[in-house]
Design a protein around this nucleic acid. Structure first.
Lengths: 194, 194
DNA sequence: ACTCGACCTGGTCATATGACCTAGTCGGTG
DNA sequence: CACCGACTAGGTCATATGACCAGGTCGAGT
């Protein structure tokens, strides 16, 4: 990040949120510093004051958004820790795959981030870090606390790619998200009985 | 497609291939009609003669590329039909997931296509059609010819999202593609013994 | 010979974008 | 009070992009 963009400052956040909205709706193709400035209601120079250019802005957007998603997943799974493991699994997978079946904001934005990541190693690294964090959160939510590491890795090896891939292929499949939930649950039951 | 762009004409193919290369390396952000013209070695007006604008060109690129990928998958699976089912499964999954683990051209291009599809319903529909076709090819390659439809759907429900998701998450996982291959093979063996 | 359509080019022009500069305001500090 | 840094804006200018137009060549058909 440009030194003037403190991630906690209100203006910086405004700019990042505006950029995120444009990225979601118009892709990277439609994202310009001037456009972001217009959306925030400040001058181009003011945006350039905080972010040296489009690439710096995109990088800040990536960091901001993956942090937000990590937090949301952690919060969602924290709310179910009191429930039985089978319940937690079902809720998590159902919420996740149903979201994946719709063209949600998150789906759209991740598609844009994947695209950028395919061309920018630092963004790819940021997404990899996000997925590693997500893997840990998933393992904690889907398995008992004392599950061995090998089992955690195996479960995550199944679930994480599946969930991301479902968001781009799910609508083309003959069966809907509930069937995918059932399938994953039964596979998890085989791998790691609840 | 613009009426002047016959998918079989050499100039049209040249333009599409040039656009695909730029899309792969620079994303949609870097794709311009002038840039494509320069890459082909013709004037902007000549490209505009065949494609009314960038959106028409992108749509042609999508159709061309998914047709190519469908063909390649069908050819690859056709080459293994004489082998035992377990062999075929292993070969297909290994080739696919190892590719997914690298940032191959195909990975890059599909990321760009997903991104565009998130914003353009006709591209999303074209990708859905591609995935439906791919699902059929996968089912034929992974199962015996007389497998019931319900089983085909179930296998595809597992494998297709998995393979696509692996291409964006695989590098962040603790285990590599061979472990993913083994996992999928064992899950397939449970679902549909070879 | 003439006409027509396919194909190709160069040019004009409006618009958008970002790099960069200058200048002003405001609050805090010495 | 003067200075400085944080912040904000407006302006200039170079560059890129695409819409669109006019005109030329060539081959086929009448």
């Amino acid at each position: 990040m440009n030194g003037r963009a403190s991630s906690a400052s209100p203006k910086t956040l405004q700019i990042i949120e505006a950029a995120l909205t444009i990225l979601r709706d118009e892709g990277e193709r439609g994202l310009s510093m001037r456009g972001v400035a217009g959306r925030v209601g400040v001058s181009l120079s003011n945006v350039q004051y905080y972010f040296r250019g489009k690439d710096a802005l995109i990088r800040a957007v990536v960091d901001h958004y993956v942090a937000q998603c990590s937090r949301e997943l952690a919060d969602a799974t924290a709310r179910t820790t009191e429930r039985p493991l089978a319940d937690r699994r079902r809720t998590l997978l159902r919420d996740t795959l149903r979201h994946g079946h719709e063209m949600t904001d998150m789906c759209r934005i991740f598609r844009e981030l994947w695209s950028v990541a395919g061309r920018d190693a630092s963004v790819e690294a940021a997404l990899d870090a996000y997925y590693r964090q997500t893997a840990e959160t998933l393992a904690a939510a889907l398995l008992a606390p004392d599950a061995p590491d090998a089992l955690k890795e195996r479960v995550v090896l199944l679930v994480l790619p599946y969930v991301e891939g479902y968001s781009v292929t799910g609508r083309a499949l003959a069966q809907g998200p509930d069937a995918a939930v059932d399938l994953l649950l039964s596979l998890l039951e085989d791998l790691a009985p609840a």
